[in-house]
Design a binder for these strands. Structure first.
Lengths: 338, 338
DNA sequence: TTGTAGGCGTTATCAA
DNA sequence: TTGATAACGCCTACAA
């Protein structure tokens, strides 16, 4: 097989013109059956694959969607991506994933490998890219849907998220009313994380609603990272913080929190209740099984892809979609003993 | 901003030729400082981004590596991807990820969106794509490195994996000699998974080496999936299988196994020891903390990318790399009580 | 039904 | 130091 096989080689091999080969490949116009089979045979014999770049250049790119995330490292992100992937396939699109590995600033120098020239539309998660990049796409009217973040000032880009505030309100309320807890600690996510911001609002509103004082000492850094959560809890344990419940911010952190607490001889939920957010796949297997807020992450892809395709097809899309969440009561909150 | 901004618009705006603009962008040849700044300004004003497809067509594609995986759904895959990503960045390459969502057969109809025309080289995980596709790349001498699988018959493609057999041998040996277990069950992975195949070999060899009989009844399907592992253990519990240790195949399954066992009133490790493979991030927080085989997944990316770059640069690469693993003894095996 | 030829946006070669 | 122009591989009028 020669180094590079182009449509010309196929045409020669089959004794037809390149136009005919193109027609066979794209199944447009009428081509006589014998010609079709001759061309197909030549393609197979030569192992010919159309050059994506050339196709794209003439506006015949395959249907490709892109998603940009900071990393693929958490169960949450993982499920989100899977969900988008399935939705894309469902709609006959391919999905390409690019992770910025937490280096938003990279683009100043290097343009994104996933951009308007390679994809038909882009899904951008939280702050995986900076506002300037988003604005760039926006100005070009390039199809864009924002995931778990709101649009930059002055732009109107469809965005999709979950009801963090009401979800958190529900779980804190549950801790207060059903589980009779009074000193409820809260582990925040990364500083610039919108989810965390809204969860904090929900946390504060619930406290206020039930007449519990807000105590800054009960706020800690979890960062949605196992080691950060671990450090925070160990710190609290060391200073002997008075606490009877911990809202860990997310499930990953909650698992670690329970583990650290238990290693220190505390009982969960008897001494300290622990609750999470997300309902990760393994959360129901934790010991004790984790009470959490179930966010239908596996459905987000459907909404996101649907909106993106509307944009791609030139139709208007809803500016903002907030998906409902629900409380999942298991053992770690102590409700079942109360 | 016009719908499409090409190098021509920039050239006009800056009052130079497209060739000059190209030179400025690629920083080749000498261009007078004033010209450079005029061009830069035009680029910024117009929000110009080079067309990736056109660039690729003339052989000036940005440095892009691709990785093809079946999914992004496990902690293991997630760490592997992250590792590859970091290594790629380290070498000034971008990484694009494509998941086949377990539909290997798709390509017959649709060619891969990640191929020789879009990337400079490809990393292919296990059986995310079929042999025919791999052979296609192989025939074209397209840079390819196989991850956690061996090359198809008749091809010689560099591949990278871990010492599954010796790792499993070690953990089974540990169970037998230190923990004094005799009835050790084994949960296999997916049927066509090479890792699982080698782990089974290690399991059998260890049994034989220490004179323990191999009992088919002790082999079960885990599939490296939480629900499959759960079903298998529940089945064993129901029939009252006589077992004093379980090698769960991987950590995810091990977590589930412990949980199901405990829910059924069994003590881990007193009644049944449980061990895993991979050393997932959360495994040390499990209760009890999981004894497992530590595979340096976070280093695989370095090896893989290094090999791929050698291939891309026309240098020869090692046909096969097997990375060593090590035993991590925690509580779930019962060694610390013995 | 099939072939010819022009153009998609960029870069590289060759002149100027 | 710059500009004109020919590729790169493919698709799509327009002709035949």
């Amino acid at each position: 097989m020669p180094e590079r096989v182009t449509i010309v080689e196929v045409a020669n091999q089959a004794g037809v013109s390149t136009a005919t080969v193109s027609r066979v490949i794209n199944e447009v116009n009428k081509v006589s059956p014998e010609t079709v089979s001759r061309v197909r045979q030549a393609i197979k014999a030569l192992g010919y694959v159309p050059n994506l770049a050339a196709r794209t250049l003439v506006g015949n790119s395959p249907k490709i969607l892109g998603i940009i995330v900071p990393a693929v490292s958490s169960p949450f992100l993982t499920i989100l991506i899977q969900s988008v992937n399935l939705a894309a396939i469902e709609n006959n699109y391919n999905l390409l994933i690019y992770t910025t590995v937490n280096q938003t600033s990279l683009f100043a120098a290097n343009p994104l490998p996933l951009n308007e020239h390679l994809t038909n539309g882009l899904l951008i998660f939280a702050n995986s890219v900076d506002d300037a990049t988003i604005r760039h796409f926006y100005r070009k009217h390039f199809p864009l849907v924002l995931l778990y973040r709101s649009p930059p000032q002055g732009t109107t880009i469809p965005c999709i998220g979950i009801s963090n505030k009401s979800g958190t309100f529900k779980v804190i309320e549950h801790l207060i009313t059903t589980c009779k807890r009074r000193r409820i600690a809260f582990l925040t996510g990364p500083a610039d994380n919108e989810d965390s911001m809204w969860r904090e609002k929900g946390y504060r509103e619930a406290l206020e609603f039930y007449g519990l004082p807000f105590d800054p000492a009960l706020m800690g850094q979890g960062g949605y990272h196992d080691w950060m959560a671990k450090e925070q809890i160990e710190e609290w344990l060391r200073i002997g913080l008075d606490v009877d419940a911990i809202f860990a911010g997310d499930d990953t952190s909650a698992m670690v929190v329970m583990s650290v607490l238990q290693a220190a001889g505390k009982r969960v939920p008897e001494d300290i209740a622990v609750v999470g957010f997300n309902d990760d796949p393994l959360s129901k297997y934790a010991s004790p099984p984790l009470t959490t807020v179930r966010a239908p992450t596996e459905n987000i892809g459907d909404y996101a892809v649907a909106e993106l395709l509307q944009l791609i097809n030139g139709e208007p899309a809803a500016p903002m979609t907030l998906v409902d969440v629900e409380l999942v009561i298991r053992e770690s909150c102590g409700a079942k003993m109360a």
